[in-house]
């Protein structure tokens, strides 16, 4: 259980039988009155954000949530399958649960899967991934300074903007938080 001083941004809590992450917290107290802890929480399953207030004497349950590294195996179109490389246990997630990570999924690569009470609920890609360009306009030699760019489709299907000198078939490093090209991978 978490006391009001432990309800901090980033803590994961269970409220109304669901897992949430705290995105903002404050202690408020009117004059000589009852003290409250006000938190803004984001649902770890569907992403909605709500506000809750607690008496400062109340405790809040910690969510039974762990993040574990898993290998992406394949998708059957309905589910996306991951495997725990240690135990070889497999979990399946829907496209909603996979969320933005969908853009960066490459078979055999490792991703962070969030388990709530042992059930997979979310996937997060590493901050940087290296992916091959499957389709883009031919490169313009020598243009490394103009800042102009062109769209490139990656092997995962995602489209990112790349500089003009980059070619089809090359491997590039992408920042998954911004969806932006970082550099050509060696």
């Amino acid at each position: 259980m978490l006391t009001h001083n432990q309800l901090r941004q980033g803590s994961r809590v269970e409220i109304d039988g669901l897992p949430w992450i705290i995105v903002g917290a404050d202690f408020v107290k009117p004059g000589k009155g009852q003290a409250f802890t006000k938190i803004r929480i984001k649902n770890l399953i569907d992403g909605r954000v709500i506000e809750r207030t607690f008496k400062s004497s109340e405790t809040v349950a910690k969510a039974d949530v762990i993040d574990t590294e898993m290998q992406y195996l394949y998708s059957d179109g309905e589910f996306w399958h991951f495997m725990d490389p240690g135990s070889c246990d497999q979990v399946a997630l829907t496209s909603v649960q996979v969320g933005d990570a969908l853009n960066w999924l490459k078979e055999q690569e490792a991703y962070q899967v969030t388990l709530w009470k042992g059930k997979a609920i979310a996937v997060q890609a590493p901050q940087f991934v290296i992916l091959t360009i499957s389709q883009c306009e031919p490169g313009v030699k020598g243009d490394t300074v103009s800042g102009a760019n062109k769209p490139a489709v990656l092997e995962t299907g995602a489209t990112v903007k790349v500089p003009l000198f980059v070619n089809e078939g090359e491997r590039i490093r992408v920042d998954t938080r911004t969806g932006e090209y970082v550099e050509r991978a060696k």
């Binding site: 408020v28 107290k29 009117p30 004059g31 009155g33 009852q34 409250f36 006000k38 207030t53």
Partner: peptide, 9 residues
């Protein structure tokens, strides 16, 4: 009084 405090905040 607790509910009034909450409404105040």
């Amino acid at each position: 009084q607790g509910v009034l405090d909450w409404l105040m905040v």
